[in-house]
Simulated scan of single mutants.
Amino acid sequence: MKRLIGLGLVLAGVLYPFAVHFGMAHFAPWQFAVLLGGLWLARLLTLRQRTGTARTAAVALGFCAVLGLSDSAQMLRWYPVLISAFMLALFGASLLHGMPVAERLARLRDPDLPPRAVRYTRQVTQVWSGFFLLNGLIAAALTLWAPLTWWTLYNGLIAYAAMGLLFAGEWLIRQRVRGRP
């Protein structure tokens, strides 16, 4: 059930810009808030003890409550900014406390990372932090000043393409750092 809810949140995030763009003709903002809030509430209720994830879910629920009460179409457009802020907080906080996110992921495959790889994963986490900062700023600017079609194009396609390019570029660099052709 927990994985199904997680998948639902991922799908909602990916499809959200298109749902907003095409769904506004058929649904009120409060209805989006109820659907999105239901997913986040289910996520919160299925958590065991991940305090960071619980805080994220609680903030997302707060956003959904404000969206539902305001019933504002403009407020709908702030969700991608919130998601970028969550990701920036996750990656950025890992640089300050504990193990950087990229290192944690790398250690799943290779628990005994050499010092060179540890430095590299810290740099990768810094790059992703920068990406989420820039992505959030662009999403905010489009929310404030751009037409809905531009906002949808960026948040529904360009941002994901940029993430994919960054991921692919990092993978290629990682192969080179590891000494693979």
Results as ranks from 00 to 15, higher is better:
R55M: 04
V66G: 04
R174Q: 12
H97N: 14
P100I: 01
A12H: 04
T152W: 02
P147S: 07
W145A: 14
E170N: 06
L166W: 14
L137V: 12
S70V: 02
I138F: 09
T125L: 06
L35Q: 01
A42K: 06
P100W: 08
A106I: 08
V81L: 07
D110K: 12
G130A: 06
P181G: 08
T149K: 08
A159M: 09
L39E: 11
A28L: 14
R43V: 07
L133F: 15
L165Y: 05
R77Y: 04
F131G: 01
L76G: 02
A117V: 03
V66K: 09
F131M: 01
F63Y: 15
L15W: 08
W40C: 08
N135R: 01
S94M: 10
M24P: 00
V59E: 05
D112V: 11
A106R: 13
T152Y: 08
A28H: 15
G156C: 09
I158R: 07
G37N: 09
L137M: 14
Q126N: 01
Y79S: 00
G37I: 03
A54S: 12
M99V: 14
F27K: 06
T121Q: 02
T152R: 15
G98L: 02
V81H: 09
A58L: 14
I138S: 04
W145R: 11
W40M: 11
F91E: 07
A33S: 09
D71F: 12
Y79I: 05
V10E: 01
Y120N: 08
A65P: 08
V81W: 12
G68H: 15
L82D: 09
A159G: 06
L88M: 14
S94P: 12
E103K: 08
L76P: 13
S94F: 11
V177M: 13
L90M: 11
T149R: 10
F132W: 08
E103I: 04
T121Y: 01
G130D: 11
L90N: 12
L7R: 02
R180C: 02
W78E: 02
R176N: 05
L144H: 08
